[in-house]
Design a protein around this nucleic acid. Structure first.
Length: 92
DNA sequence: CGTATGACGTGCA
DNA sequence: GTGCACGCCATAC
């Protein structure tokens, strides 16, 4: 555990079911900090564990963010998971 | 301890 | 619909 917050965020991200996605703000809210979306993204990039499907975490706009420093990679991964992505955006 | 940066979010032009 | 700016939290220096 790096810090209570990071561990909590990672814990929630690990709980994201396959074929579904969650926004950084959602994760932050679940972690207990509704305005810590920035910190959530920070923790992800600083601690991208293979056990953490951080590629399922997207922007609140539905746009895919970054993954391992690559933009648009999440789109392909999510599509592979069965998520409908159009023009780099998640179809809700 | 104070400043700077970053995988964000919302508001306004 | 797109672009720019400000504000938030956590981490690193």
């Amino acid at each position: 555990m790096m810090s209570q917050f990071s561990d909590r965020v990672i814990d929630w991200v690990k709980k994201i079911p396959k074929g579904k996605t969650a926004s950084y703000g959602e994760i932050a809210t679940l972690a207990g900090e509704p305005m810590a979306a920035r910190a959530v993204g920070n923790i992800m990039g600083a601690n991208q564990d293979p056990k953490v499907p951080c590629h399922r975490v997207i922007y609140s706009d539905g746009r895919v963010g970054r993954y391992n420093g690559n933009l648009g990679v999440k789109e392909d991964l999510l599509k592979n998971e069965g998520v409908n992505v159009t023009n780099g955006k998640i179809v809700v």
